[in-house]
Write a protein that binds this DNA or RNA. Structure first.
Lengths: 200, 200
DNA sequence: TTGTTAATTAAACTCTTGTTTGATTATTAA
DNA sequence: TTAATAATCAAACAAGAGTTTAATTAACAA
């Protein structure tokens, strides 16, 4: 048999979701095209109809879409003119952490598979640019807080990387079926980093 | 030609060091046996004399040795009966962070290559056991501090994972030739997490 | 010296897996 | 109805890379 009825047709989005799952379970190199395909009831060759550039392209889109998704959540908070730096930081952490816990496969890919896009000439620059933009959102909030005197002075670079490390690591250990909700985790993390920044 | 003079002979330790470097640069799957071998002026086949079980065994030993190294640094502090919980935490962070910044390839491997040992029946359990023991060192210090009233109550599990996330992420972004020393990073991180724990 | 063992090499072996290709079937617009 | 296009499959292709093997040489003890 060949082509499926229209309603059952597999979309690019379906494939990317499946790919993220397989990447989480087996890693990019451990994930065979056939594994990804079978998750959506296709064969390996069929994937090339949707992604002519093959496995690399699938990885690129998983990571770029994932990072864009997280970025939009955080940006919405950070660019709200009615919030103070401490409010922004707290809400941004909440938005960021819950975005990760609600998309655990994407969260894992953002940690473990980033390496595999760095040797890919096509994808590398676009991805790194996205990542800088994202990191800058946090740096800006922290710098603003320091400048306005609500936050005590810290090394913004180290502080931001420490915060992002804590967040990204969620992608390594978080299990949806576990004891902890995204909100629990966000609350604890927000508390830690706000305590550290607020003057006493 | 074949065997080298005794003084120039390549040791297992040399190979593991080289392997960690290659893993950092290219990842476990991107690292060819020939790449590792050429770093120590051998050919791929020669590695099987030192590591009969091949590439998997090399990964296992890189990760186990690396984790043992870091564990010993931290354990020395944590098991010192003369230190209070806040002193222990501060010194443990310092020891841990500097161990990572002084061994950047190992630090990177501990983040990125752990995945690749989890599907390895031989290595998996031994490694996970080590990791639990290590994580427990930090949990114990924090729990002790809470029990004795110097630390305010927090979710020890989330707190520890947040701290370890911050630390492990160093293996992703730290560059030895960069602006920051291990001591700088340790000082900032210790400050963040102690502020968060100390009662006001 | 000389036999034994350790260390190494080159080259062949295999297997896996991403990719390509040509045919086949469903869909849809004219 | 029918031509054109989209989606899919099965099977072949290609190439890389981990591993094995047999031979070779250095070291060292007796």
């Amino acid at each position: 048999m060949a082509r499926k009825p229209a309603e059952q047709a597999v979309s690019r989005e379906d494939i990317l979701l499946a790919a993220a799952d397989v990447f989480r379970a087996q890693g990019y190199h451990g994930a065979k095209m056939a594994d990804i395909a079978s998750e959506v009831d296709l064969t390996a060759g069929s994937l090339y109809h949707h992604f002519p550039a093959g496995k690399q392209q699938i990885l690129r889109e998983v990571l770029n879409n994932g990072l864009d998704m997280v970025t939009e959540h955080v940006r919405k908070i950070v660019e709200d003119p009615d919030l103070s730096p401490p409010e922004k930081l707290k809400k941004a952490i909440y938005a960021h952490v819950t975005a990760l816990t609600e998309n655990p496969s994407v969260a894992a890919a953002l940690v473990f598979e980033t390496r595999n896009i760095l040797n890919d000439q096509e994808g590398r620059d676009a991805y790194l640019k996205r990542r800088d933009i994202f990191e800058n959102l946090y740096q800006q909030v922290i710098q603003d807080g320091i400048d306005s005197g609500v936050f005590k002075p810290v090394d913004v670079d180290i502080f931001t990387k420490t915060l992002l490390g804590a967040h990204n690591w969620i992608g390594v250990w978080y299990r949806p079926e576990g004891r902890l909700s995204g909100a629990d985790i966000a609350a604890t993390i927000a508390d830690i980093f706000l305590q550290a920044l607020l003057q006493r």
